[in-house]
Design a protein around this nucleic acid. Structure first.
Length: 318
DNA sequence: AGGTATTCGACCTCAACACA
DNA sequence: TGTGTTGAGGTCGAATACCT
């Protein structure tokens, strides 16, 4: 299977819409990698909602969650699809901005963001110090005037050398990696000492669960009080491969959120020891806790500590 | 082996910026 | 003042490492 299936996935969403609207499929539609998933999902949607008037593909829009809009008898609802080749893969729930933990008022007294914390730790400087343990960078890298770009190219260069079993390169990247990991844990320890805002944590959990991940939308909605309507009409269809067959299951997001709200008295962030993540947990009446979301401090590009810090969020609710 | 933790890639949009 | 370029941020997902 190819690595990047995003366009194909988007085409598959459009194919689902065509099937729902009883439109003819093209040859290339039928050759889509996810065609079996598309048929299976469309079939299940039809079973679940027999009175569909029209379906529309939404694509990337700011004003809603979900990939597909369905107009049924007087009702309209949104459908989000997640197609996976594996048995259980449901993908990353969200991958949001590095400072989202502090930008969304989850803590009292406005604690430092991860990026501010790193600035205080002189992250860029120590990374550069390590990178400069290597002294034979090619000219084209040394000529780069933008220090950020030069740092990235150095790291990239070392990454390639590491693939070729160069020990020095590997050692440097490992040192950066280890120190960065310590820095992440140190930051999480710092957050651990902050007073939490339970209501905000609850809202944050609900919004992420609803698929609202974009920085500004998240920040605005979390300050408002009536975003629950958004949940009422959202359904996620997951398709997975199980024993060679496509299995589809539907998730009613509104119901899921309602149930979780009933089940838990309270919400909190916990900080397991010595790992690079924290977790949002629900707390029941008897005080017991259940994990809901895992939030990982992470660097997306090149190597840890180098480029594009972010938060990876995983759904732990099963 | 199988689950969990961690790392990383590809592609997308958008806004800032330079430049004509 | 439109237009091309570039970096930051966002999204979806896989690959790999690391446990027990």
């Amino acid at each position: 299977m190819g690595k990047h299936e995003r366009q194909k996935i988007e085409e598959a969403e459009k194919i689902i819409v065509k099937i729902l609207n009883s439109q003819k499929l093209t040859t290339s539609d039928r050759e889509n990698y996810w065609i079996d998933h598309a048929f299976a999902i469309a079939k299940k949607i039809k079973e679940d909602f027999p009175y569909i008037k029209i379906a529309r593909h939404l694509g990337n829009r700011y004003d809603n969650t979900g990939d597909i809009l369905i107009l049924s008898n007087k009702r309209e609802f949104f459908i989000e699809t997640k197609m996976s080749d594996t048995k259980t893969g449901i993908g990353t729930k969200a991958n949001i901005g590095q400072d989202a933990l502090t930008e969304n008022l989850l803590f009292e007294n406005n604690p430092k963001s991860w990026s501010e914390f790193r600035r205080d730790k002189k992250h860029e400087e120590w990374v550069n110090d390590y990178l400069n343990h290597f002294v034979k960078y090619p000219k084209y890298i040394l000529k780069i005037t933008n220090p950020i770009l030069q740092k990235e190219e150095k790291a990239r260069y070392l990454r390639e050398l590491k693939k070729k079993k160069n020990k020095t390169a590997e050692n440097i990247l490992n040192l950066i990696h280890e120190r960065d990991k310590k820095e992440k844990i140190e930051y999480l320890n710092y957050l651990k000492g902050q007073k939490q805002r339970k209501e905000m944590i609850k809202k944050f959990f609900v919004l992420i669960t609803l698929g609202i991940h974009k920085k500004d939308v998240l920040e605005n909605l979390i300050k408002s009080n009536n975003f629950f309507q958004e949940a009422q009409n959202l359904f996620v269809y997951y398709s997975n491969i199980f024993q060679g067959k496509v299995i589809v299951h539907k998730e009613d997001v509104g119901e899921k959120v309602r149930k979780i709200m009933e089940r838990f008295l309270d919400f909190a962030i916990i900080f397991p020891k010595d790992v690079t993540h924290c977790k949002i947990v629900g707390i029941k009446k008897d005080g017991s806790r259940e994990p809901l979301l895992q939030i990982v401090l992470h660097w997306k590009n090149i190597a840890q500590g180098i480029k594009t810090p972010c938060l990876n969020i995983f759904d732990l609710t099963g």
